[in-house]
Computed example of a mutant assay.
Amino acid sequence: MMKHGLFVGLLTLDFIYLAESPPQENQKIVASDYTVAAGGPATNAAVTFSYLGNFAKILGIVGSHPITGLIRGDLDAYGVAIADLEPNHVYPPPVSSIIVTQSSGDRAVISLNAAKTPANTTTIPANILENIDIILIDGHQMVVSQEMAIMAKNQGIPIVIDGGSWKPGFENILPYVDYAICSANFHPPHCHTEQDVYNYLQTFPIPHIAITHGEKPITYSHHGQISQIDICPTPTIDTLGAGDIFHGAFCHYILQENFPNALASASKIAALSCQYFGTRQWMQHSGDG
């Protein structure tokens, strides 16, 4: 059955290049391939959630600058609706330039986040949570995200956070969170070890916590009990967006499976995405959609 998800956060335009290596100072290089797509953690998660057979809506800032047509066109192609917090915003959206190293799949990224285009709660559309089954927050629009977390909690809608890295303001959202899915780079204040992170998150308390480590096992806390899930080895072409894709897949699977199984299923989708260049190509090779 189709589920409805709301994804709150960053929308960017990503220019992605495949090359032997990132350029050095004053060096020009020629890419062997390139692609252009809408990006941002919540955005890539929404695309994945939609691809897996659901309805996805992204809540963020797009605006009316001419190049936003590329963002809208990409998301429309993948069935993702946009709830624009600033439809009359005339400035260019954040643009990311990304170079993927051909031999390793590692990526170098330069971009702007949402810090220069903060939204406020007065522009949240009415009835934004109507029929929504799950909400994901990536931390790039904290004021709006906090309001959405409160609203979702009051309506009994499960809340997932994408903890790719710590962002000030997360501490105001964590009391409402059901699922904290974090990377090994997520370091709240005064947290120096992974156990520190678990201890910190459990104080809120968050019932379901997971920390990903790339190709290494996922550790997770299920009502306080820490366990791990092994990741199947996979050839890696491009790791760009794998964490975002993991989060979108997790939102899909957690609505039908228990927490450990949802993590395992999402990890398979993320691993598949790493076998192909860019953030969209994997969908052409998946039997899950």
Results as ranks from 00 to 15, higher is better:
Ile181Ser: 02
Asp178Lys: 11
Leu240Met: 09
Ser64Trp: 14
Leu174Asn: 05
Gly224Glu: 01
Asp230Gly: 10
Ala270Ile: 02
Glu147Val: 04
Ile99Trp: 07
Gln275Leu: 06
Arg107Asp: 02
Ile82Ala: 07
Ala42Cys: 05
His222Leu: 14
Ala42Arg: 03
Met148Ala: 07
Ser227Thr: 08
His190Met: 14
Ser267Cys: 09
Ile254Arg: 11
Ile16Gly: 03
Ser50Asn: 06
Leu13Gly: 03
His285Pro: 06
Phe277Asp: 00
Phe186Asn: 02
Ile229Thr: 10
Ala46Cys: 05
Ala184Tyr: 13
Ile211Gln: 13
Val109Ser: 08
Gly169Ser: 10
Gly248Ile: 00
Thr12Trp: 14
Pro188Leu: 07
Leu255Cys: 14
Phe55Arg: 13
Ile124Met: 05
Leu70Tyr: 13
Ser273Trp: 14
Ile157Gly: 04
Pro188Met: 06
Glu25Gln: 11
Cys274Met: 10
His4Asp: 15
His187Cys: 14
Ser265Ile: 01
His89Thr: 03
Gly69Trp: 05
His192Leu: 12
Ile226Thr: 14
Ser183Cys: 07
Glu171Leu: 05
Ala42Leu: 04
Pro175Tyr: 03
Val197His: 12
Tyr176Asp: 05
Val197Pro: 11
Met151Gly: 10
Thr123Val: 07
Leu174Met: 09
Ala38Arg: 02
Ala180Ile: 02
Glu86Gln: 15
Tyr220Ser: 10
Gly9Thr: 01
Thr239Asn: 03
Thr203Leu: 13
Ile135Met: 10
Pro92Gln: 04
Asp178Leu: 08
Cys191Gly: 01
Thr123Asn: 14
Thr203Val: 11
Thr203Cys: 13
Ser273Gln: 10
Ser221Ile: 05
Phe259Gly: 01
Glu194Phe: 12
Gly5Thr: 06
Glu147His: 11
His192Gln: 14
Leu85Glu: 10
Val80Ile: 05
Tyr176Arg: 04
Asn154Met: 09
Ser96Glu: 07
His140Lys: 02
Ala42Gln: 00
Asp162Glu: 04
Gly40Asn: 04
Phe7Ile: 12
Thr122His: 13
Phe204Arg: 07
Ile135His: 09
Ala81Ser: 15
Ala249Lys: 01
Ser183Val: 08
Ile269Lys: 06
Asn185Tyr: 15
Pro207Asp: 12
Ala249Phe: 08
Ile29His: 07
Pro235Thr: 11
Ile173Leu: 06
Thr121Pro: 07
Gln225Gly: 00
Ala152Val: 09
Val80Gly: 10
Leu70Glu: 13
Ser21Tyr: 09
Thr117Cys: 09
Ser273Cys: 10
Ala38Asn: 03
Tyr220Pro: 04
Ala115Thr: 10
Pro66Gln: 01
Pro118Tyr: 12
Tyr17Ile: 08
Ala46Ile: 01
Gly40His: 05
Asn127His: 14
Pro233Gln: 05
Ser32Glu: 01
Gln275Ser: 08
His89Asn: 14
Ala264Arg: 15
Pro189Phe: 15
Lys28Gly: 04
Ala31Ile: 06
Ala77His: 05
Gly139Lys: 00
Tyr78Ile: 02
Val177Leu: 01
His223Asp: 15
